[in-house]
Amino acid sequence: MSADDGEPGLRLSSYLPYRLSVASNAVSSLIARAYQDRFGLTIPQWRLIAVLAEEGGTTQGQIVTRTFMDKVTVSRAAQGLAGRRLIDRSEHHADGRSHVLTLTPEGRRLYAEIAPLALAYEAALIAGLSPEEVSMMRRLLLRLQSAATALAGEGQPPPIG
């Protein structure tokens, strides 16, 4: 299908996966600049700190599962944070190949400083939306994520036509 044969073709500007990606990149770039400029953190490092603040001690594998970041990204983020003494790594008693990551007191202080900024960015981003729209967007994003996970698990693209 193309514009040449009279059929509507793919229009990138209205293609939902593209719009989601562009919106995500715009939001991530905005927030990444703030975290980098003010705190010297990358987005993966911030996500790792946030997970540890919410859940306490956890393994890198659990962080991979929770955040959908790949293992290498999580490992690099953890190494950078450990180097700055924002997290501690201790041996995992049940799995000798794994380590439990926890925030240090300095890491907790940094989280306490960044969390209000993160919430302020979220508030500014959704300021033009009603509470109902925000609630609906959260539900729809979860449904899209679930559908993408299911499609990825099937290993096949959906049928055409």
Rank of each mutant, 00 (worst) to 15 (best):
S24A: 15
E54K: 07
A50Y: 02
R47D: 14
I63E: 00
P44D: 12
R66D: 13
I63L: 00
G40M: 03
Q45P: 01
S75F: 08
H92V: 00
R84P: 03
G56R: 03
Q62N: 14
G61I: 00
L20W: 12
R47C: 07
G9I: 09
L12D: 13
H93K: 10
S75T: 14
D95H: 03
G57A: 04
R84A: 10
L12H: 13
R97G: 14
V22D: 12
K71I: 01
A82R: 03
S29N: 08
S75P: 11
G40K: 07
L30M: 04
D88F: 05
R66F: 12
A50C: 09
D88L: 05
T65Y: 02
S29E: 15
P8K: 10
T42Y: 05
H92M: 11
S24M: 15
N25D: 14
V27A: 11
T65G: 05
G9Y: 14
H99M: 09
L10Y: 04
T59K: 05
T59Y: 06
T42E: 09
Q45F: 06
Y15T: 10
A26P: 05
V51P: 03
S29I: 04
E55F: 06
D70W: 02
P8F: 13
T58D: 12
N25M: 14
V51D: 07
I63F: 00
L16I: 11
I31H: 08
R84H: 04
R66W: 04
K71C: 01
V22S: 06
A94S: 10
N25Y: 15
V74Q: 02
G56S: 05
S90E: 11
D95L: 01
R19L: 14
T65R: 09
D88R: 10
L41R: 12
V74E: 09
E91V: 00
T73M: 12
E7D: 11
I87Q: 06
I49T: 04
S28P: 01
R11K: 13
S75C: 13
N25V: 05
S21D: 05
E54N: 12
P8H: 08
M69L: 15
A32K: 13
A26Q: 12
D95P: 00
S21Y: 04
S21V: 09
G56H: 01
F39V: 06
I87R: 01
I49E: 08
A34N: 10
L30K: 00
W46Q: 14
G96P: 07
R19V: 15
R11M: 12
G56P: 03
L86F: 08
G61C: 02
A26L: 15
R33G: 06
G80P: 03
V51H: 03
V27H: 04
V51L: 03
S29Y: 12
L10V: 11
R66Q: 09
T73Q: 08
S75I: 09
R66M: 11
L52M: 13
E7L: 10
R11A: 15
T58A: 15
R84C: 02
